[in-house]
C-alpha cells in the first residue's frame, strides 16, 4: 500500500508538473490578458441557519428587482468564483438583483459540524437564504458543482418551491449523481487508489491544520478544475479561494458526494426553464453527467463548451453569462404568462 501510494503520488506529481509546464507555455501566448474580475461589492448580510451557522450573504443590484438571481458555489470554493456572472448580469440587466452566499464551512461563512456537512443540509440552508433574503418575487437559482447539487437537494426537499417561486434554474458544471465512478481524468487504477487515499490525506491535513500548518493547494487542484487552456489569472484567483478553505471543510464534505443521487429530484424542475452548462473537459463532473441531466429534463437547454474544464463559468465567462441572461428572460416570460382558467365542472 505504501509503495503504491508513493507511486501514485509520483505519477500525480509528474502529471501536475506537466500541466504546470503546459500552462506556463500557454501563458506566453500573445492573446491579451483580460481584466481581473473585481470582488463582488454587494450589500453584506448574515443569515443564520437552524443550527446556528452564520452564512455570509451578498446582495447586489436594484432593491426592487423584476427577479433575483441566487448563485450557489462549489466545494472548497466560495461565492467569489461567481464574480464574473454577478458583474455580467448586473451590467446587462439593471432591473435584476443578484444574491451570492458562502456555504457553511466555506468563504466568510461560519464553520459546520461534521454531521451537518451534507448536501441535504446545504439544501435547507439555501431554503433559509431564500426565505430571509428574497422573501418575495421570482427567483432564478444558479448552482456550480456542489452548488448545483444543493439546488437538487432543495428540489428534493421542497419541490413545491419550483414553478411560482423559483422560476428558472441553472445547473453549471454539476452532476445529479454517480460521482463515485468519476476518475478525475486519471487512469482507472490510479483513480481508485487516489479515492481510497483521499479521506486519509484529508484527515492528515486536518490534524496538520490543527497543529498550525495550513492546507497546501497547488498544481493538482488547478489541474483538476481547469483545462490546459485556462487563463492563468483565473487559475490564480481560484487557487487563492481554494487556499482559503480549511482542511476541516474539505474533509467534512467529501463523504456526502458518494450519497448524491438526485436525478429523480430533477422531476421538480420539469415545469421551469432550466439551463445545463458544462465544459466537456470537466474532470470532476464529466460532461456525460450533464447529458444525463438533460435527458431527465427534455425541455432544458444544454450548453456544452468543448475544451472547457470544471470552472466553466470562468473559462467561458461571456458565454455562460449570456446563457444565464437568456434563462432569466425565458423564466420571466413564462412566469408572466396568464394562468389558464380552471375548467369548471
Amino acid at each position: 500500500m505504501r509503495t503504491r501510494s508513493l507511486a501514485t503520488a509520483g505519477a500525480l506529481a509528474v502529471a501536475a508538473g506537466a500541466v504546470v509546464a503546459r500552462r506556463r507555455a500557454a501563458g506566453r501566448d500573445s492573446t491579451p490578458a483580460p481584466q481581473p474580475v473585481p470582488l463582488p461589492q454587494g450589500r453584506v448580510r448574515t443569515v443564520t441557519t437552524e443550527d446556528g451557522v452564520d452564512l455570509h450573504v451578498e446582495v447586489s443590484g436594484t432593491r426592487e428587482p423584476t427577479a433575483t438571481v441566487v448563485l450557489a458555489h462549489g466545494y472548497v470554493q466560495s461565492s467569489r468564483l461567481w464574480a464574473g456572472q454577478v458583474r455580467d448580469l448586473l451590467d446587462a440587466r439593471p432591473d435584476l438583483a443578484v444574491v451570492t452566499y458562502d456555504h457553511r464551512g466555506h468563504g466568510a461563512s461560519g464553520p459546520t459540524a461534521r454531521d451537518r456537512a451534507t448536501l441535504e443540509q446545504l439544501g435547507r440552508d439555501l431554503a433559509r437564504v431564500l426565505e430571509e433574503v428574497v422573501p418575495e418575487g421570482p427567483v432564478v437559482l444558479g448552482g456550480h458543482s456542489m452548488g448545483g447539487m444543493t439546488i437538487m437537494a432543495l428540489a428534493e426537499q421542497r419541490p413545491e418551491l419550483f414553478g411560482d417561486r423559483v422560476v428558472g434554474v441553472a445547473l453549471v458544471g454539476t452532476s445529479s449523481g454517480g460521482l463515485d465512478a468519476v476518475t478525475y481524468g486519471l487512469p482507472g487504477p490510479v483513480a481508485g487508489v487516489v479515492k481510497r487515499l483521499l479521506p486519509v490525506l484529508n484527515e492528515r491535513a486536518v490534524r496538520a491544520e490543527q497543529a498550525g500548518r495550513p492546507r497546501s493547494v497547488g498544481a493538482m487542484d488547478a489541474w483538476l478544475v481547469f483545462s490546459g487552456a485556462a487563463d492563468p489569472a483565473d487559475v490564480r484567483t481560484a487557487m487563492d479561494v481554494h487556499r482559503a478553505c480549511t482542511a476541516e471543510t474539505v474533509a467534512a464534505f467529501l463523504p456526502t458526494f458518494s450519497d448524491h443521487d438526485r436525478v429523480t429530484a430533477l422531476a421538480a424542475l420539469a415545469d421551469v426553464p432550466v439551463l445545463i452548462a458544462a465544459g466537456d473537459a470537466d474532470r470532476l463532473c464529466p460532461i456525460a453527467h450533464s447529458h444525463a441531466m438533460a435527458d431527465a429534463l427534455p425541455t432544458a437547454e444544454l450548453a456544452v463548451y468543448p475544451g472547457a474544464g470544471h470552472m466553466v463559468q470562468m473559462e467561458r465567462r461571456p458565454e455562460v453569462s449570456r446563457r444565464l441572461l437568456a434563462l432569466v428572460d425565458r423564466a420571466l416570460a413564462r412566469a408572466s404568462r396568464p394562468v389558464p382558467a380552471e375548467r369548471t365542472a
Binding site: D280, P298, E301, L302, V304, Y305, E319, R330
Partner: peptide, 16 residues
C-alpha cells in the same frame, strides 16, 4: 476547433 465554439441543444417548448 470545437473549443472555439459553444454547442447548444434545446428541446424546449417555445415560450409564447
Amino acid at each position: 476547433d470545437a473549443e472555439s465554439y459553444e454547442l447548444r441543444s434545446a428541446r424546449r417548448v417555445p415560450v409564447p
